[in-house]
Computed example of a mutant assay.
Amino acid sequence: MRTPSEAGHDGLEPGLSTIVDERRQLINLAYRLLGSLAEAEDAVQETYTRWYAMSPQRREAVESPGAWLTTVAGRICLDVLGSARARRERYVGAWIPEPLPDRTEWISGRAGGGAASADPADRITLDESVNMAFLVVLESMTPAERVAFILHDVFRYPFADIAAIVGRTPAACRQLASSARRRMRAAHTPVVPSAGQAGLVRDFKEAWEAQDIKALVGLLDPGATMTADGGGLVGTVLRPVEGSGAIARYLVHIAAKAPGLTLLERTVNGRPGLVAQHAGVTVTVAAFSLAGGRITRIWAVRNPEKLRPWTEDGQDGQDGQDGRG
């Protein structure tokens, strides 16, 4: 498994060269596997901890440091995915992947802020494999399916290398990736051009601000679903709201209940979305899925632990704990 680190930085100690070249790749991989930037950072940090736990002689004996790091990071993520299933069974309400801002909109990273914590978002490549619809379907896969699919279909690793990560044969890994592709096709997540989505999201924002139920219903697919994630830390609806009429009425109820709520058009996981702020603090980040010129899915993330990249100075969004969004 050759990686970009083997092509450059001649003369550097292998570990240093790997850090320079591979960290972005590992963060991209881990975020797609785990759906959480915080967990991705932890997984990559643990990967490097294991690298430097080896003696210099053992590190120098590694033929491909990038391949070694990818294998270890993949195994760590596989373990995290296994334990995450149990944690999410205890999670209050729906669990939605952590939303990512555009790199130009990133404010601060994990609690504490600073340049180091702001760095990870700049390392995430915002392509279709991180849009919210894609990540939500990944959540329906088994850990092994998810790892095989992401490594092969997104990062183009051969099944022989993936087999070393998931502990199965290359043929079994091929089957895992094939099963994952069927799940993706069954989910029917068409790609809508960003310009078209931006216009629809803008119309949706204006109808919401005007508390115009009729306009909202017209923008929503009749079978649309809205899912909110508060994690039990802030007030929000615990079950999906289904149907255009029910969603429109719920949104108007929120607008009436929370005067002063400001809606901003922002990039969410590489696609046009909305950010709701109260008193200058981000309290909700909403991602959308569209089909046939209408909104089919809304994912509203309100869990303050997932909104740290969107809030200044690492604030936890405490101002939003009164049920808004």
Rank of each mutant, 00 (worst) to 15 (best):
L238P: 03
L238C: 02
R239Y: 03
P240S: 02
P240L: 13
V241K: 10
E242W: 00
S244C: 02
S244V: 01
S244R: 03
G245N: 07
A246S: 12
A246Y: 01
A246G: 02
I247L: 06
I247V: 11
I247P: 03
I247G: 10
A248W: 03
A248D: 08
R249K: 14
R249W: 05
R249F: 05
R249N: 11
R249C: 06
R249H: 11
Y250V: 07
Y250E: 14
L251R: 12
L251T: 13
H253S: 15
H253T: 14
H253F: 13
H253E: 15
A255L: 09
A255P: 01
A256G: 10
A256N: 11
K257D: 12
K257A: 12
K257F: 04
A258Y: 07
A258G: 04
A258E: 12
P259M: 08
P259Q: 04
G260P: 07
G260R: 09
L261F: 00
L261V: 00
L261Q: 00
L261D: 00
T262C: 04
L263M: 07
L263H: 05
L264D: 12
L264P: 00
E265I: 13
E265F: 02
R266K: 13
T267N: 06
T267D: 05
V268M: 08
V268D: 09
V268Y: 06
V268S: 09
N269Y: 02
R271M: 08
R271L: 09
R271N: 04
R271S: 09
P272R: 08
G273K: 08
G273P: 09
L274M: 08
L274H: 05
L274I: 03
V275W: 05
V275I: 15
V275K: 10
V275L: 15
A276D: 04
A276V: 05
Q277Y: 00
Q277F: 01
Q277P: 01
H278N: 01
H278W: 04
A279D: 13
A279E: 14
A279Q: 10
A279I: 08
G280E: 00
V281H: 01
T282S: 15
V283D: 06
T284K: 08
T284R: 12
T284Q: 11
V285C: 12
A286D: 04
A286R: 07
A286H: 00
A286S: 14
A287N: 10
A287H: 07
A287W: 08
A287Y: 06
F288W: 07
F288G: 12
F288D: 12
S289G: 12
S289E: 15
L290D: 03
L290C: 11
L290R: 01
A291E: 15
A291L: 05
A291N: 11
G292Q: 08
G292D: 02
G292T: 03
G292R: 03
R294C: 08
R294T: 15
R294I: 09
R294N: 09
R294M: 07
R294D: 10
I295A: 15
I295C: 14
I295G: 15
I295Q: 09
T296I: 11
R297P: 00
I298L: 11
I298Q: 03
W299G: 02
W299N: 08
W299S: 10
W299C: 01
W299E: 03
W299R: 14
A300T: 12
V301C: 14
